Deep mutational scan, measured.
Amino acid sequence: MKVMIRKTATGHSAYVAKKDLEELIVEMENPALWGGKVTLANGWQLELPAMAADTPLPITVEARKL
């Protein structure tokens, strides 16, 4: 699914347009965010693609819901 990742004042957030859902990312498998699992505030887990740590945000990526 397409997910937009952006930086907020409190960390990172994910927006899933198909579900009209925006949630804070509360847990990251990798400190650089990319190439691992993230957990959203509502409990969803997404697998993000591997990208460079300095990838500019906001960005829309293809993520997989676990």
Rank of each mutant, 00 (worst) to 15 (best):
K18T: 15
A9C: 09
E62H: 12
T10R: 13
T10M: 13
M1K: 00
S13F: 14
P31D: 11
L21D: 05
A41Y: 06
E62P: 08
A53K: 10
K2D: 09
P58T: 05
I59D: 02
D54K: 07
K18I: 15
M28S: 13
Q45N: 07
A53Y: 11
V3N: 01
V3E: 01
K65M: 15
G43M: 03
G11F: 05
Q45C: 12
L57C: 04
K2V: 14
D20C: 14
A9S: 12
K19I: 15
V38C: 03
L24Q: 13
V16S: 06
G35T: 03
D54S: 09
D20N: 13
Y15N: 05
T8W: 06
A32I: 10
K7F: 07
G35Q: 05
V38A: 01
L33V: 06
N42G: 06
Y15G: 03
E47G: 06
M4L: 12
K7I: 08
P49M: 05
L48G: 01
I25W: 02
V38I: 14
A32W: 15
K2F: 13
E29G: 05
K37P: 04
Y15L: 10
A52W: 05
A9M: 10
A63Q: 02
G11A: 06
A9P: 13
A9V: 10
K65L: 15
A50M: 14
M4R: 12
R64D: 04
E62D: 11
L57N: 02
A41I: 04
T60N: 06
E29N: 05
S13G: 06
W44G: 00
N30W: 08
G35N: 06
T55G: 04
P49H: 04
M51D: 01
A53C: 08
T39K: 10
L40F: 04
P49F: 07
L46W: 02
D54A: 08
V16Q: 02
G35R: 02
L33A: 03
A63P: 04
R64N: 09
E22W: 13
T39L: 10
N30L: 09
I25E: 00
I5W: 02
W34S: 01
L46M: 08
M51N: 05
D54W: 07
H12N: 05
L48Y: 02
T10F: 14
E62F: 15
A52P: 15
R6E: 03
E27L: 09
K19T: 14
M28E: 03
M1D: 05
V61N: 00
L40D: 02
D54E: 10
G43N: 03
G11R: 03
K18P: 10
W34K: 00
E23C: 14
R64L: 12
A17V: 15
E29K: 04
E27T: 10
A41V: 03
E47Q: 13
V61P: 00
E27G: 10
P56W: 07
A52L: 08
K37L: 12
L24F: 10
W44I: 07
G11E: 02
A63R: 00
A52N: 09
W44V: 06
D54Y: 06
L46R: 00
M4E: 15
V16H: 05
W34M: 02
A53E: 13
V61Y: 00
N30P: 02
G36T: 04
A14I: 15
W44R: 00
L33K: 02
P58L: 06
V16D: 09
K19V: 15
G36D: 01
A14M: 13
I25R: 01
E23I: 15
L40Q: 01
N42T: 03
K2L: 14
I5Y: 01
K19C: 15
E29F: 05
M51R: 05
G11N: 03
K7S: 08
L21E: 07
I5Q: 01
L46V: 05
Y15W: 11
E47S: 10
L66Q: 06
T39P: 00
M4F: 07
A14V: 15
T39C: 08
T60D: 06
L24A: 14
T8F: 06
R6I: 10
M4P: 00
I59Q: 10
K2T: 14
R6Q: 10
G35E: 04
L33G: 05
L57P: 01
I59W: 07
G35S: 04
A17T: 11
D54P: 04
R64S: 08
T8V: 11
L46D: 01
K7G: 06
L21Q: 10
E23Q: 12
A17K: 10
I25K: 00
A63L: 08
K7P: 06
S13A: 12
L57T: 05
S13C: 14
R6T: 10
M4Q: 14
P31A: 11
K2I: 14
D20A: 11
A53L: 10
T39D: 00
V16A: 05
S13Y: 15
A53M: 10
E23K: 05
A50N: 12
E23D: 06
G36H: 02
P49D: 03
R64Q: 11
T60W: 15
K7E: 07
R64C: 10
M4C: 11
G11I: 02
E23G: 05
T60C: 12
M51W: 05
L21F: 14
P58W: 07
L21S: 08
V16G: 01
K18G: 15
T8N: 09
I59H: 08
T55V: 08
L33W: 04
K18S: 15
P58Y: 06
L33P: 03
A17D: 09
V61M: 03
N42Q: 00
L40C: 04
L33Y: 02
A52Q: 09
V16M: 14
V38R: 01
T55E: 02
T10C: 14
K65S: 12
P31W: 08
